[in-house]
Write a protein that binds this DNA or RNA. Structure first.
Lengths: 140, 140
DNA sequence: ATATTTCGTTTACGGATGTAAACTGTATTT
DNA sequence: AAATACAGTTTACATCCGTAAACGAAATAT
């Protein structure tokens, strides 16, 4: 029954700063997001506190101001998050959803190559058709 | 300021039934989801009502029981939803997120071909590197 | 040492979400 | 027609989320 703790849209913004910087003080996060998102400092503070409660962030309190560090890697967070979304989708539709994403995302040459590799692997064993499971059990 | 109305995880399940069947009575939706998700009938009724309020569903009330029909196509819903999630991600990470999705999803031969096409197109103009925008304005 | 600034914590509040019981109006059975 | 079953609507409630002000403790400046 216990669901995995998830990151809200606003919390994502905070984590992105901290992942990108490796670690950060609240001041640093606030400076970026006040400008980028037009949020009030108080809002950003709330988000930092919630992220700590959710165990996505930890404050190093040995000196002041505290230094906030991620407890989860950006890659795992992304992984959890996209897989979680894809769980919502009809199996039959995942392929076109991926296509859509590729069309709408700017991706680098090396990412393209990497993806093509995976696709070539997949191709060896991929089924002709994927069955819809919308009316059946999800977790089978 | 006004955000687009979004579908919650639970609401997705309801929509999937109705998309798959084309249209459905509440009884049909309830039968599937009671089994599939182990939800109470009352819960599913609530979701149907909320989906109507959000204009994702419309009841044809000319006869009883009502027949519920989607007001949004599955494809647009998916499109909105995946793009919305990807907006959260660092630009640099989108490529590997897509790779991850492909690895974890069962996709058909024809989807694979379709995706490869898009990739080949992309390859022609894709940059060597994508810049991280996590510390910059999002909507530039 | 005191005043001021900075930064972390508490409290707030309306709307969304998961979850569901209770209520009510309509249809079907007896 | 009355009783029962079914389906649609209202109400409920705890938690999460976006958004932020207020408060209190620590550090810095005077």
């Amino acid at each position: 029954m216990k669901e995995i703790e998830t990151m809200s849209k606003a919390e994502w913004q905070v984590m992105r700063i901290i992942w990108t910087l490796g670690q950060a003080t609240s001041k640093q996060v606030i400076e970026v997001l006040e400008r980028k998102m037009d949020w009030k400092a108080a809002t950003i503070k709330t988000l930092i506190i919630r992220l700590q409660k959710k165990d996505f962030l930890k404050a190093d309190e040995t000196s002041r101001p505290f230094i906030y560090k991620p407890l989860i890697s950006e890659d795992s967070a992304i992984s959890q998050s996209v897989n979680n979304l894809f769980d919502n989708l009809c199996c039959m539709k995942k392929g076109s959803a991926i296509k859509e994403l590729i069309e709408n995302s700017e991706i680098s040459q090396s990412d393209i190559s990497g993806i093509m590799q995976v696709l070539q692997e997949k191709q060896k064993t991929a089924p002709e058709e994927v069955e819809c499971n919308c009316l059946e059990g999800d977790l089978v």
